[in-house]
Simulated scan of single mutants.
Amino acid sequence: MELDFSNKLEITINNKKPVVLTDLTLSLLGVAQQFEKFVENETNEQHQIGAELFIKDVRSGSIIVELVAQAAPVVPLLWQGGSLKEWADYARSVVEWLGGKISTPPQDLTKQDLKQWNNILEPVAKDGGSQMNFTVSKGGTVINQVFINSEQANAAQNGIRRQLEKLDEPDDHIQRKRVMIWSQTKFTDGTSTGDRAIIESISSTPIKVIFENHAVKKAMLAGDARFSKQWHELAYIVDVKVQTVRGTPKVYTIINYYDEDTFDPDEG
């Protein structure tokens, strides 16, 4: 095994408060885990390189840790600036996505990935005014830097919590007594194609609607004698099963509606 000492990743934590040892340990472990996964995702069996990080030096002052990786194959050059530089670019994109600065993640992140990023950011997120720096150098020349202050770390951790909540949310779940209005109706009693409704408490976008059973559908289509409007112009209180794809509602299945609560949405 050959280590590449000409390329190094320096992690600096400019802390204002003493850092809990377990927080620091888990943070560095998270960096190692995420670097390893990044390398494995970006390479293949034909062009394998070592994915482990090694501590080169720990210096005084702020918390400064120098890490090195195994040397990459001479040919082909997988990354012009080396694996450490590429990972730093990736780390910047992840933190920006979690903090809401960009809309698309650089890669799909699993629950485990999110928890590891939470660990990486923890020493800075819980220490107001502190900062974490990733500095990649080649032959003594800085070629990449990433700066994450406590405010950015907190924003990213909030993003992590939101993403974990989405991943924990079941694909199919029932929501009770929601207000539904029709956006588009094409069906008759014998078909269910082309129907869309809006349930604003779930999504402002019109979503495809189906019925769990014929009886509920027939009762809703019968209209309501209390109103002069037709059935598709009324608002309904429904129990609905929401089917999602990657956290986005795609189909509403109406499983029940409360006929006594039907109302005219245009009335005050």
Rank of each mutant, 00 (worst) to 15 (best):
G50M: 02
R59Y: 05
F54W: 11
I63R: 11
F54E: 09
F38S: 07
E52K: 14
L53D: 03
E42K: 05
N41Y: 04
Q33L: 14
T43S: 09
G50K: 01
E40A: 09
A51Q: 02
E42P: 02
S60D: 13
E42Y: 01
S60V: 13
N41I: 06
I55R: 03
L53V: 05
Q33S: 14
I49N: 02
I55C: 01
I63A: 11
Q33R: 15
F35Y: 15
R59G: 07
S60L: 12
I49D: 00
F38R: 07
Q33E: 14
G61V: 07
E40P: 02
I55D: 05
G61E: 08
F54R: 11
K37N: 09
E40I: 13
F35R: 06
K56E: 13
I49Q: 11
G50V: 02
I55N: 07
I55Q: 01
E52I: 00
F54H: 12
G50Y: 02
E42I: 01
I49A: 02
L53H: 03
S62Q: 13
L53R: 04
K56W: 00
T43I: 04
H47E: 08
I49Y: 01
Q46L: 08
Q48L: 08
I55L: 10
H47R: 00
Q34Y: 04
E42R: 13
